[in-house]
Design a protein around this nucleic acid. Structure first.
Lengths: 144, 144
DNA sequence: TATCATTGGATAGCTTGCTATGCAACTGCT
DNA sequence: AGCAGTTGCATAGCAAGCTATCCAATGATA
């Protein structure tokens, strides 16, 4: 059995992301949220009324992915799509009261997951980990 | 705009994994492979004839996920499911000639992606990155 | 031995990602 | 003004992840 899962960065990245998603999902499911919805809310909590195009740029997902996520969020009463005053093609995305009220419980649930994940690392190691991860992301983004 | 994507480990993990998958997909698509199929092949190249249950344990995905991936791989002529000689419930998974012949090109394609991803890191930093990632995975696995 | 619990897989149904297309609204140019 | 290109979204269709269920084969035990 020479197959070593622990030596490929790609394999590890996939595994880690799945575990993060699993933890986050467990924690925010009681709130009626799914992980991608939470990520989208993170952006909208900071600045309500963004357009889909702006959300795509902020979260770095494909436009089609965002369109579908927004449709589910609208269905779940988290956002409203309003006609954009200046551009007939686009819409601005606005939070509902429900979505606004979820900010505190949802972000603290997410912080809990991050806490578990980094629980075994020292403060210095955490910083190193985040910095290295950012650099890997940058390298990948440049090429792909 | 206070929303800082670069400070949440979970957010970064998701982003990094998506970029890895994107790069891998670009590189192995010409071979007729998809990322999860490649991961599964990694295990089977090392040891042909594993059962689904063993693959689930090795790759740490849910049984249902693996069942579906195997179905697609069977459809694509990469594997065969054969009746297990000792247990009527299970089947052993065997590679086709096609799958065996893909080992070299596919693994070198994957190595190329890892190379790009870690391209900006020193040898020492790469080791550190992999070690920290493994520790994060361990912490998450213990709790979730 | 007959029953009950466990185990290996399959299936249904959902989210989130992707690529590929199509369409309508805007922009720029002549 | 009109046409061509660009841009913002929506939709279709697929892969891969998950949970929840179900079924059949095995195993354990009364």
């Amino acid at each position: 059995m020479t197959f070593d899962k622990t030596r490929s960065a790609g394999f590890l990245a996939n595994h880690m992301a799945r575990l993060f998603a699993k933890g986050l999902q467990q924690n925010i499911r009681p709130l009626g949220l799914a992980p991608a919805q939470f990520m989208t809310l993170l952006a909208l909590w900071e600045k309500d009324g963004l357009t889909q195009r702006e959300l795509v740029a902020l979260l770095d997902v494909e436009q089609a992915t965002m369109a579908n996520t927004l449709t589910r969020m609208e269905r779940d009463g988290l956002i409203e799509r309003r006609a954009h005053p200046e551009d007939g093609r686009s819409q601005s995305i606005h939070l509902t009261k429900k979505a606004i009220s979820l900010r505190e419980p949802a972000t603290s649930a997410a912080r809990a997951v991050n806490g578990v994940a980094l629980g075994d690392l020292s403060e210095k190691e955490r910083t190193t980990f985040l910095n290295l991860t950012r650099r890997v992301i940058d390298s990948l983004k440049q090429r792909y």
